[in-house]
Amino acid sequence: MRHGSWWAFLLHRLSGVALAVFLPFHFFVLGLAVERAALNDVLDWADNLWVKLAEAGLVVLLALHLTGGVRVLLLEFGRWSDRQQSRIALAGGLALLAGFGFLAAAFA
């Protein structure tokens, strides 16, 4: 009996957990910018297909969590509408678009 809203919830939650785990590392690496060489070492390490794919995944997660969150805010603070399914589709679509946009930009 899982339906659209439940899957939207699951994606929102899983992406949130993943971002919470990623965030300390992200901050830590940026903090290396005090010494440019240290940051450049990390950026050089990250300059390959697999890390780029993982980064694209993170962009998708961020976009998913954003659109999922907007869904929750609309649901709770906006006026109720039964167009939930289209919102969910829109959320997923935007997230994927952002991910592909990242890939396209990264390899251009």
Binding site: L23, P24, H26, F27, L30, G31, A33
Partner: peptide
């Protein structure tokens, strides 16, 4: 960590 990154 966030403020450290920002400062950096």
């Amino acid at each position: 960590l966030g403020l450290r990154a920002l400062a950096a």
